[in-house]
Nucleic acid binder design. Structure first.
Length: 316
DNA sequence: GCACAGGTAGATT
DNA sequence: AATCTACCTGTG
């Protein structure tokens, strides 16, 4: 009981300061080598987890702690590779298979990267060389949609804080004392007011409308995932609050469609500055990206985004 | 006080 | 069809 109270106190204090949650180490298993782990450079490991693809990873001490679906996992990189640990009692085989799906181990990102036009594109070459092993995550579809519905004109730390607040308020508790993101039914039941209390502002109305629709149409997102990319995109855009950019984020980070190329303010600036496309708007830039980067344009986008965040390319 | 931040939808030109 | 503008909230 005393332990529980202490944890809650710590959590609320940290929430106010918008710092990552910290959980009781005793609740976690020993570190285990992730034998199937993909190769990551240090930079790519951090950027893949905490670079704006997903909003539920936090640096804790010498590791990253993340959540998706009903999973809580800690990952740490050392000279032997990637190590993981999970709440005591979690089935190691289930964790392994959850990791395999989340990290899209069935996708050959090294091969997709090599097929990008880096040989003739020095900007892309710089970005790829700075983040060797960068991957596109394959996140649960609904969670990806929720995260990016929260994202408009918000910075990553704020999006993470909102996701955490909504999870604590509406989501199921997890074995380590943290919370999963809520289902659409849970969000719809909570309503717009509670979403606004999580500091969602004008996004709350869209998210509530989307949650009401999706909870009344179970299977709709899975049906969408079965469609070709352009048809899936059209359906996603029909949801309240989802435009081209958020739809492309969902296609890329939640459905593994590497051709999807989200253009946000960062990517717009990168393309304009690095490729001399002054005055180009979003639609022509999409055509440029498709033609120049090819079928894995979305992977190129992630390299460029990472490199721009690091101040390596497209500087003023 | 004010501009700006991983956008979208609706109005106006 | 292209270009505003409102919409919440936090940060600098």
């Amino acid at each position: 009981m005393a332990l529980h109270d202490q944890g809650c106190q710590r959590r609320s204090a940290r929430q106010k300061a918008e710092l990552p949650l910290e959980h009781v180490d005793l609740a976690f298993s020993d570190w285990q080598l992730w034998a199937d782990a993909p190769h990551f450079s240090r930079t790519a490991f951090a950027e893949t987890l905490d670079g704006g693809q997903a909003f539920r990873w936090n640096r804790i001490k010498n590791c990253f702690e993340g959540r998706w679906a009903k999973n809580t996992v800690r990952l740490r990189q050392d000279n032997s590779g990637i190590l993981w640990c999970a709440p005591t009692g979690d089935n190691p085989e289930a964790v392994g298979s959850a990791l395999a799906q989340y990290f899209a181990l069935d996708t050959d990102f090294a091969g997709q990267t090599d097929a990008l036009p880096w040989r003739s594109d020095p900007v892309l070459k710089t970005a790829i060389e700075a983040f060797p092993g960068l991957r596109i995550l394959r996140q649960p579809l609904g969670e990806t949609l929720f995260g990016f519905l929260c994202s408009s004109t918000k910075q990553i730390p704020q999006i993470k804080a909102i996701c955490e607040a909504v999870a604590i308020d509406m989501g199921d508790p997890l074995p380590d004392g943290s919370h999963a993101l809520p289902s659409w039914a849970q969000i719809a039941a909570a309503g717009e007011t509670r979403l606004r209390e999580a500091k969602l502002g004008y996004r709350a109305r869209y998210i509530n409308q989307t949650a009401v629709f999706l909870s009344q149409n179970p299977g709709w997102l899975d049906e969408t995932e079965a469609l070709p990319t352009s048809e899936a995109r059209q359906r996603l855009i029909s949801l309240p609050g989802v435009g081209r950019k958020i739809a492309d984020c969902v296609l890329l980070f939640g459905m593994g469609r590497l051709e999807a190329f989200p253009i946000d303010t960062w990517v717009q600036k990168i393309l304009v500055r690095a490729y001399g496309l002054e005055g180009w708007k979003s639609d022509p830039l999409l055509d440029f990206a498709r033609v120049h980067f090819g079928p894995s344009a979305g992977l190129a986008q992630q390299y460029l985004f990472a490199a721009a965040r690091a101040g390596l390319i497209a500087k003023k």
